[in-house]
Amino acid sequence: MKLDKATVGKRYAKALFELAVEDGQTDEIYQDLLSLRNIYKEIPTLGDLLSDVRLDKNEKRQLMDTLVEPFSGLMLRFLEIVFEYNRMDDFLLIFAEFERRYDDQKGLVIGTVTTAVPLNSQQKEALESKTASLLHYQQAKLEEKIDPTIIGGVIVEANHQVIDGSVKSRLDYLRAKLAR
Score class of each variant (00 low, 15 high):
62 Q>Y: 10
62 Q>D: 14
63 L>P: 04
64 M>D: 05
64 M>A: 10
65 D>C: 02
65 D>G: 15
65 D>E: 15
66 T>W: 09
66 T>G: 10
66 T>H: 10
66 T>N: 13
67 L>E: 04
68 V>H: 03
69 E>A: 15
69 E>F: 13
69 E>Q: 15
69 E>T: 13
69 E>S: 14
70 P>V: 08
70 P>L: 07
70 P>M: 07
70 P>Y: 05
71 F>D: 05
71 F>S: 08
72 S>E: 14
72 S>G: 13
72 S>L: 03
73 G>H: 02
74 L>D: 04
74 L>S: 06
75 M>G: 13
76 L>G: 01
77 R>L: 11
77 R>E: 12
77 R>I: 06
77 R>F: 03
77 R>S: 14
77 R>Q: 12
78 F>V: 01
78 F>E: 04
79 L>I: 08
80 E>D: 12
80 E>L: 09
80 E>V: 02
81 I>P: 03
81 I>A: 08
81 I>S: 08
82 V>P: 09
82 V>S: 08
83 F>H: 10
83 F>C: 01
83 F>D: 09
84 E>L: 07
84 E>H: 10
85 Y>D: 11
85 Y>R: 13
85 Y>V: 07
86 N>I: 00
86 N>E: 14
87 R>C: 00
87 R>W: 00
87 R>D: 00
87 R>Q: 04
87 R>V: 00
87 R>I: 00
88 M>A: 02
88 M>C: 03
88 M>V: 01
89 D>V: 01
89 D>R: 02
89 D>Q: 06
89 D>Y: 03
89 D>H: 09
89 D>L: 03
90 D>P: 00
90 D>S: 14
90 D>Y: 13
91 F>A: 06
91 F>T: 03
92 L>G: 03
93 L>D: 08
94 I>C: 02
96 A>E: 12
96 A>M: 05
97 E>V: 08
98 F>K: 09
99 E>R: 14
99 E>T: 05
99 E>Q: 14
100 R>M: 09
100 R>K: 15
101 R>H: 09
102 Y>A: 08
102 Y>K: 11
103 D>Y: 15
103 D>V: 06
103 D>L: 14
104 D>V: 11
104 D>G: 12
105 Q>G: 13
105 Q>F: 12
105 Q>W: 10
106 K>G: 05
107 G>C: 10
107 G>N: 12
108 L>S: 07
108 L>F: 10
108 L>G: 05
108 L>H: 06
108 L>M: 14
109 V>M: 10
109 V>A: 09
109 V>L: 11
109 V>K: 04
109 V>Y: 08
110 I>G: 02
110 I>D: 09
110 I>Q: 14
110 I>S: 11
110 I>W: 03
111 G>S: 09
111 G>Y: 06
112 T>Y: 13
112 T>D: 11
112 T>H: 12
113 V>C: 02
113 V>P: 05
113 V>F: 02
114 T>L: 03
114 T>K: 01
114 T>S: 06
114 T>E: 08
115 T>I: 06
115 T>D: 03
116 A>W: 00
116 A>D: 01
116 A>K: 00
117 V>Q: 15
117 V>C: 06
117 V>H: 14
118 P>R: 12
119 L>G: 00
119 L>E: 00
119 L>F: 00
119 L>D: 00
119 L>I: 00
120 N>S: 04
121 S>A: 15
